[in-house]
Design a protein around this nucleic acid. Structure first.
Lengths: 131, 131
DNA sequence: TATTGTTATACTCTATAACTATA
DNA sequence: TATAGTTATAGAGTATAACAATA
């Protein structure tokens, strides 16, 4: 987590901001409240998060109805989200490559087994595709 | 991490406090500054940590020389450290048991490979036995 | 001069309560 | 009445700077 934090710092992103950008990128127009539920972030904490990314020109808000607002990535938001995702993917590949070849195939099944064991109560799912 | 946090909350311990208790238990009389280096905690942040555990009667301090103090677990500190460790071990066993039997043997080699890949720069080691 | 413990301080993350306005 | 967004606030976790006492 510490090294991932450093990777994201290269893009001036905290890990929560990264997650939010990826979620919005995969779900343009998503409501703040939906993003809160998916990422398990309190509504109150989403406000400065979205405001910060908006101030940086990475996302924009458009009213859906009188109380809801849909958030989408701007052009530069999409560009940053793409670059950051590539960096995170490279980081993860580095981790995988540190594992002996014959064990690499077992990583995903093991992680999925632990994950499903953990998700007994809350259950979040893959979080990327919220229709 | 979230579930482990909840496990430790049953003993009114934060995960940093748990780690410190285990470290002291394995290294009675360790200096605060040594504990800081092993656990990678700032000296300034160790002060309220140790004070809190001392106020709860879990550890005691004895002067080594004019400026250093050795910290050790009290009787109740050892008892709590033991119970908390058992709970954490049980928690970890639960995670392992969620993994299909034929994959369980690969978990430790995979984790060690990732760990040694991560420890390229800082390197902390097992942190339990600091001679 | 370097180390140990300490104080003060600040920033981030997270959590709760309460408010406004809308559905 | 429930929901969406907001504000204020409080508690942890963590970081730096500075200080006194000691090695």
């Amino acid at each position: 987590m510490s090294r991932l934090h450093d990777e994201l710092a290269n893009f001036s992103l905290r890990h929560t901001e990264f997650s939010l950008l990826q979620l919005i990128g995969a779900n343009p127009g998503i409501k703040q409240s939906e993003a809160c539920r998916v990422l398990e972030i309190q509504r109150a904490n989403m406000v400065p998060l979205v405001a910060g990314l908006e101030d940086r020109g990475l996302l924009s808000r458009k009213p859906i109805d009188g109380r809801s607002q849909g958030i989408s990535l701007t052009r530069s938001g999409r560009a940053l989200a793409k670059k950051a995702l590539a960096a995170v993917a490279a980081f993860e590949n580095g981790l995988i490559n540190a594992i002996p070849k014959h064990l690499q195939q077992h990583v995903e099944p093991i992680l999925l087994a632990i994950w499903s064991g953990c998700a007994v109560d809350g259950d979040v799912g893959t979080a990327a595709s919220t229709s």
